[in-house]
Design a protein around this nucleic acid. Structure first.
Length: 578
DNA sequence: CATGGGTCGTGACACTTGCG
DNA sequence: CGCAAGTGTCACGACCCATG
């Protein structure tokens, strides 16, 4: 047998064995994944057994809670189970269980939980240095002053309504006047905040002003929040697409769950510092309220709540196990069709076991839930994801929610019709919206056309549109009138032949009053079909004078030439990049 | 009110280059 | 060698987005 032929045969066999092994591995993984729902049910029933054994301990531990925590109407956390899980998974946040029983600090030194990035944000004030009586008098005066303003009447009425709803739910409790506060905790021993409203998507969200009343200035944080990003869904899809391979068909879907009144769920240890005051439009006086949990507006609330959410999510991921993540109180399960339903289902029941009930209806194990369990199209963090072509083609489509497009189109039309960039909300608002809709979700689509808008921002107050402004705005108008531009992600394993590219430029003086720019690039194609060890491409050239004349006039051209060299790669070998 | 992420422009500073 | 101009890097602040 000639040498060449023998080599080829050997190569063919090796290839064959490799692909057989791959097939076997994939089918194994696939079969094991299909077993997931049954295995999960098994593990969950074990957790349930442990849970009921520990119930007696939880009620004993919760007897130790201070009064303000005891009277809260939210379901009580199963602290003994939580503690057992923390030990089992070696959770670093060792204070968590204790704080769920006794309350966590809302102001002052907030100990490092070890969950988030370590970073000190020192306090600028101390609680001891503040005269609470003086500040509470100020608080009364400012609320009374606001109540005299007729333009504030509707907001104050809406805020009052919101607080009443919280009182009815049993997560805030009325205290009454400032005299009642003094009687309750002692004069000068409490420090309240003033409630104000923030308009958010047409809804009014009550916040307590922890900045103005120095609660936040007195807070020392030792860690910095790290939260989930929208690409979680894509990473989750990739986890399954990789080992399962391109051939097996399986669908992929998402379901989100909300934990209601998030911050209020974590009890505080200093209820005398978390009370808030607002105008009572019915009785026409200042009214004080107490809280079991955290206020919106406290620095400490963010990290403290997220510590809890982080544990709830991570223990479900590790013990059941499921693929899920969370953004504050928004939990998101992202799994294949053959496993996703059980993941979703068990997350709800696991949370209920731990004492945290999701907003959606909860139905006993084994029974069918109302509505869609799990969907191939869903949104997370303001972006919509479509996995409906995942099974056939391993594709996911991501874009900003389509409701956003008409809103931006309207703004652009207004600018074009008035020929003016000066408008209500400002140009920066339009730029911000465009940035979100084009950059983050659509992979920096139309980035170049944003330049005139950035330039116009610092050019104000100019009331006329330049030809570039008009061209850019018309471009965005055309794009967005068809909805927000989508970005397509492919999860195919064997389509990712990669190329290595280097490009560079030079700029120098040749003497005799002439300067010259040079461009060059090298490309390496590791998976070139015709050669065994890959193929390299090389090119270099001097830039033409016509090209240099087209550049922006500067004393050095290196920056522009480097950019040109990068572009030249694509124009020189377009077929290679297909 | 708070957290995180992003973009841009600004100013301070360091380094490189051209010139005398 | 010093000076001036250009360029790059970094921190910062403004604004936007998401969320509570």
């Amino acid at each position: 047998m000639p040498d060449q032929e023998r080599k080829a045969t050997h190569e063919w066999r090796r290839e064959k064995v490799r692909s057989e092994l791959e097939c076997m591995r994939q089918s194994q993984i696939f079969r094991r994944l299909k077993d997931v729902p049954a295995q999960r049910e098994l593990r969950f029933s074990e957790i349930q057994k442990v849970s009921s054994l520990l119930e007696v301990w939880s009620s004993r531990l919760l007897c130790l809670s201070p009064q303000h925590v005891k009277v809260c109407s939210l379901p009580k956390p199963h602290v003994a189970l939580i503690d057992a899980i923390c030990h089992a998974i070696e959770w670093p946040d060792t204070l968590l269980t204790e704080q769920l029983i006794l309350g966590a600090p809302a102001v002052g030194d907030i100990p490092d939980s070890g969950i988030f990035r370590k970073e000190d944000v020192p306090s600028s004030q101390t609680l001891e240095s503040l005269d609470n009586c003086e500040w509470n008098a100020k608080l009364m005066a400012s609320i009374e002053a606001e109540a005299r303003r007729p333009d504030k009447a509707t907001v104050l009425a809406r805020l009052w309504e919101k607080t009443q709803a919280e009182v009815e739910k049993g997560i805030a409790f009325p205290i009454g006047s400032s005299q009642a506060m003094n009687k309750r905790v002692g004069e000068g021993a409490w420090r309240a905040m003033r409630t104000f409203g923030v308009e958010q998507n047409g809804k009014l969200r009550p916040c307590d002003n922890a900045k103005a009343f120095l609660h936040n200035a007195c807070t020392f944080m030792h860690e910095c929040l790290t939260s989930e990003t929208a690409d979680f869904l894509l990473r989750a899809a990739a986890i399954f697409a990789g080992p399962v391979g391109d051939e097996s068909k399986f669908s992929f879907g998402i379901r989100t769950e909300d934990l209601e009144s998030a911050y209020r769920r974590f009890p505080v240890s200093q209820p005398h510092l978390t009370c808030f005051a607002q105008w009572d439009p019915v009785a026409k006086r200042v009214a004080f309220f107490g809280l079991h949990g955290f206020n919106f507006g406290l620095v400490a609330a963010v990290v403290t709540f997220n510590r809890l959410a982080q544990l709830l999510n991570r223990c479900a991921v590790r013990l059941i196990p499921i693929v899920s993540s969370h953004y504050f109180d928004d939990f998101c399960v992202a799994e294949p069709g053959f496993a996703g339903k059980s993941g979703q289902h068990l997350l709800c029941h696991f949370m209920k076991l731990l004492g945290f009930v999701f907003q959606s209806d909860l139905v006993p194990v084994g029974e069918k839930r109302k509505g869609a369990l799990w969907a191939m199209r869903n949104s997370f963090l303001g972006l919509s994801f479509d996995f409906s072509d995942f099974s056939d083609n391993r594709i996911a489509i991501c874009k900003a929610s389509d409701e956003k497009a008409p809103q931006i189109v309207g703004k652009i039309e207004l600018i074009l019709s008035t020929n003016s960039l000066v408008m209500p909300g400002g140009l920066s608002k339009l730029i911000g919206k465009l940035q979100f809709v084009l950059s983050w979700s659509a992979g920096r689509y139309g980035r170049a056309a944003m330049q005139p808008l950035y330039a116009a921002q610092s050019l104000l107050p100019s009331s006329h549109l330049s030809p570039e402004d008009i061209a850019a705005l018309q471009f965005f108008l055309q794009i967005l009138s068809r909805g927000c531009p989508p970005k397509v992600f492919s999860f195919k394993q064997n389509s990712g032949a990669s190329l290595l590219v280097w490009s560079d430029a030079s700029w120098g003086d040749l003497g005799e009053n002439t300067t010259q720019g040079g461009l060059g690039f090298v490309i390496f194609d590791a998976e070139d079909s015709a050669s065994e060890c890959g193929r390299g491409y090389y090119s270099d050239t001097l830039s033409s004078h016509e090209m240099l004349e087209a550049f922006v006039v500067k004393s050095q051209y290196i920056g522009q030439l480097e950019l040109l060299a990068a572009i030249a790669v694509y124009y020189s070998l377009p077929l290679l990049f297909r």
